[in-house]
Structures are given as C-alpha cells and as structure tokens.
C-alpha cells in the first residue's frame, strides 16, 4: 500500500492508502472521501489534480500530459508515497463521515406476526436541519438509551423533509433491542442514531428489469425501494419475491397492496415455506421462487437480495446456476439478533 496525501486548495491535508492497482479516486472513495469526478476514464478533466511528489502509473497506459500537467485521479495509481494538490477546498469533498442524529419515538405499532413498526422524529441538527436524508435501501444504527447496545435497521419509508424515519423490526425473543422495544420504549423517548449507512441501493440507471428478493427482516429495505419506485411512477418491470416461513409472516407485507396499485409493472410472489392446507400461493422458499422465475421469461434482470445468511446463500446459488453475473446482483445480509 502507498501513502497518499491529498492537499486541498485551502490547505487541509487528508491521508489515505492505496494498493498499486487502485486509483487515487478509488482509494479516496474506499476511505469515505468522494472527490469530484465525472467520466472515470481520464477524459473530462473534472478529477484532474497536480501530483507534486511521488511516482504513479496511469491505468490504461501512458498518455499525453495535459497542458497544465494535471493528472486525472481516476487513472492515477500510486506506485510510491504520493502528494496530490487538489484544485478545490476541503468543502468540495463529499465526506461520508456518517452523521449522528437524535430522534424521538413518535410511534410503535404492531405489524403482525411479532413485528413492529417503529416511527421516529429526528431532532433538528445544525448541518442537516430536519431533513431525513437517505437513499432507499440504506439503514441506521439505533442505540438503546443509556446503553452501549446498538442495532442496525433498514429504513422502510422515503427520504423526507419533516424528519420522519420508519423501521420494520421483527422482535426477537430474548433479543436486547427487541426486549427494550417491547417492554420499555414509549413514544417521547429519545434515541441516538448513526446513519444513513449502506450501499444496498437501486441502480436507477440500469435499463434491465428488476427482481427484489427478501426474506424475514430483509423485506424492510425492499419496501423503501418499492415506495421510491412508486413515488417516481417507475415503469420498469419489477418482480418482488417475499419469502416467509408461514402465512402469518405475510402480515408485514400489507403495504404491498397499495404499492401494486401504484406500480403497474410490479408483480409480487409471496413464497411460503411451510404453508397451511389450502394455501394457493407459491409453496417453497424465496430461492425456489427465484429459480422458477428465472427459468421462465425473466429477461436479464438485476437482482436485489436482502435476507438472513441461509436465504442469501440459497438465492446466490440459484442465480449463479442460471448464469446471472455477480455484477447484476446487489445484496445485503441481515442477521436476527
């Protein structure tokens, strides 16, 4: 790894490290620093900066130098310790240092089958105001007041300006957060949150149809994504596979009815692993349902997958066996605690 020092126009020094095959831009992003960039192929000039010290190689091979000697950081791979002078101030770098916010519980309601909907109201913040700013699919780390106990929960609502955050939480018998939520938490209580975090978000520039696969609490981020698609009147074919162990667990999927009405190209398959007699829907796991779907006329979909480890493994196997490239599978694992 090579040490990189970025010096902003206003003199701030930021340190990071890069592997010999990694560009400065990639290393910065891995460190949570998003530098201005557009084409990512060395053409547009937006990420160009002066390398004042050190050796580097250019991805794709040597090229004619720019008249002012600036190097596109999207191609620049450090081969030694490197000093880079950036042509913009520190405020020009998007810091994804994750915000910490305070919020008040505004509601706790039953969602059926041992799940609750927790609604929070964010307190105004000097940097963010009252905005609940996140990307559908992301999650927040929630701390139990007065303890070190933290749990990560996906947001189920949409970003908004009045500071509302909504979570769908499956209560785990004996779980620390679940016990606190079921027995102690009351509207008006304050919580501390860290977020939003997570890269499990929609690729809205993709022209492909989408398959969303969720099992257990893995439904939560998919619900936010579906709400976003409905909000933007999305027309791309989207197929949701909701995996449940029993029919009773389908209760949390109640919002789907409204969403299906708003998304004419949404199809939904509720897969129940252990159905009661008389169940007319799909019997089997979410992975089984995906196998059946991909074996039909599914096109070349992007797959969004969120669920517990065993479901993830089974679904990945099904997708791999059917030749879905890894780059078209977006996933996030959830762990019941």
């Amino acid at each position: 790894m090579s040490e990189i020092t970025l010096i902003t126009r206003d003199g701030a020094k930021l340190g990071l490290a890069a592997a010999p095959t990694e560009t400065v831009l990639e290393a910065a992003e891995a460190a949570g620093l998003f530098l201005p960039a557009m084409c990512h192929e060395g053409s547009c000039g937006l990420c160009a900066a002066q390398v004042t010290q050190g050796d580097y190689a250019l991805r794709g091979g040597a090229r004619e130098a720019a008249p002012d000697g600036a190097i596109p950081l999207c191609l620049c791979m450090p081969q030694s310790a490197l000093t880079v002078e950036l042509p913009y101030p520190q405020s020009g770098i998007s810091h994804h240092s994750v915000p910490t916010r305070m919020a008040e519980i505004s509601g706790i309601s039953q969602a059926g089958s041992g799940a609750v909907i927790l609604t929070l109201a964010l307190r105004p913040d000097p940097e963010f105001g009252t905005a609940a700013d996140f990307t559908p699919g992301q999650y927040m780390e929630v701390s139990i007041p007065g303890t070190e106990i933290k749990r990560a929960y996906s947001l189920t609502n949409l970003p908004n300006w009045d500071g509302t955050l909504e979570f769908l939480i499956r209560l785990q018998p004996g779980g620390a957060f679940s016990t606190w939520l079921a027995q102690t938490a009351r509207p008006g209580d304050m919580l501390s949150l860290r977020g939003p975090v997570g890269r499990f978000v929609l690729d809205e520039t993709s022209p492909r149809p989408r398959v969303l696969v969720g099992g257990g609490c893995g439904f939560a981020p998919l619900l936010s994504m579906l709400r976003h698609l409905a909000d933007f009147q999305d027309m791309q074919p989207t197929h949701l596979i909701f995996g449940a162990n029993t029919e009773a667990e389908l209760a949390v999927a109640a919002p789907l009815e409204d969403l299906a009405a708003q998304l004419p190209n949404l199809t939904v398959c509720c897969a129940v692993w252990h159905p009661e007699a008389g169940w007319e829907g799909f019997s089997g796991t979410a992975a089984d349902a995906l196998a059946q779907y991909l074996d039909g006329d599914a096109g070349q979909p992007d797959i969004y997958l969120c669920g517990p480890p065993r479901l993830m493994e089974a679904v990945m196997r099904v997708a791999n066996e059917r030749g879905v490239p890894a780059a078209r599978i977006y996933s996030e694992q959830v762990q019941a605690r």
């Binding site: 000097p126 940097e127 963010f128 105001g129 905005a131 300006w161 009045d162 500071g163």
Partner: peptide, 11 residues
C-alpha cells in the same frame, strides 16, 4: 420550499 425550510440555510 419545503426542503429549504427543513435544511439549515446559511448561519
């Protein structure tokens, strides 16, 4: 306008 009112503005 809603966004402007929610966000901090210049201090």
């Amino acid at each position: 306008i809603q966004a402007a009112q929610a966000l901090p503005g210049f201090t």
